[in-house]
Design a protein around this nucleic acid. Structure first.
Lengths: 155, 155
DNA sequence: CCGCTATTGCGAATTCCTCATAATAAGTGA
DNA sequence: TCACTTATTATGAGGAATTCGCAATAGCGG
């Protein structure tokens, strides 16, 4: 019996087992890094994970992130003009708001609460998921009332 | 004098003027190419535009697309695992459905009809636009019950 | 028509991500 | 526990999409 009795760690190990994946230190470090810093880029995840596992390479992080995303243990967000970001919140059906000025990403709970939260009327597709991306100005960026470089008429 | 005399062409010249942009053949060719093939990638746009302007380079297309997108004359879509795509439909507030199997993109009219069509409840941001990305299986890909990897429409 | 300067063409560079292969380590049974 | 088998990681190269810097070109007002 090791010291890995932490609840979240056990849960992840169980999920990895359920997907026939080995429970490696790298995967756990990546999962912990993504959970501790939501919406982190692959590079940020690697940096965070290296506090536990200093020799972890960026390429390995990419491999692990891609694999875990495909398994459904992670969710991948691709904001415009930004590298992909990852998060562990996958059970609920929440969306994201990105500040077009500073690039910050916030979670936004879905009004409906289950996926897909919106059903398009005119489509020949069978919809599986509906991702909503809100774009706006966050509270911090809205404060300085001086010199908005790009006037964005709200409306 | 092919499509350039049409209302939309004239309108584009006017829009360019309104934004203090010169009305160049390249910009008109790019706009025409994007309109004639919606959801086209930058490379596809360049290819289409080269039927009118053979020496147009891909890099120039990128510059023009980025500029026109910033002006608001074009809309840029960034599907996961796919290069960016562009479209001229910007007046209405419509969304997109992408087939996760073949990658095809369809337009989906917004149920509400005006932007932003959804207001998040828990956010400190001032929302300007809400983009919805539906992911699912399109009609063509859903038909073949076997061999899901490569669609075999030959029959 | 002339000239100013925005725009394009061109080549290279950058960023983000993936592939190929060898080394490593996790899980398994004796 | 030990060796074995095979998934997983490290490493470096490679690739696709996009941007940058600078010189040549061409809109457009005078």
């Amino acid at each position: 019996m090791t010291t890995k009795d932490r609840i979240s760690g056990r849960s992840w190990a169980g999920q990895l087992h359920a997907h026939d994946r080995r429970v490696t230190r790298q995967r756990l470090a990546v999962l912990a890094a993504v959970e501790s810093s939501p919406h982190a880029t692959a590079e940020a995840v690697a940096e965070a994970a290296r506090t536990e596992l200093p020799q972890l390479t960026l390429q390995s992080v990419y491999v692990v992130l891609a694999d875990l995303t495909e398994l459904g243990m992670l969710r991948r967000i691709e904001p415009p003009h930004s590298p992909a970001r990852y998060e562990t919140r996958i059970g609920d059906n929440h969306h994201h708001a990105i500040c077009t000025r500073c690039g910050r990403i916030e979670d936004v709970d879905c009004a409906v609460g289950h996926a897909p939260c919106l059903i398009p009327s005119s489509s020949s597709m069978t919809i599986a998921v509906a991702d909503v991306l809100y774009q706006g100005i966050c509270a911090d960026c809205a404060v300085p009332a001086v010199a908005p470089v790009h006037p964005t008429p709200g409306q």
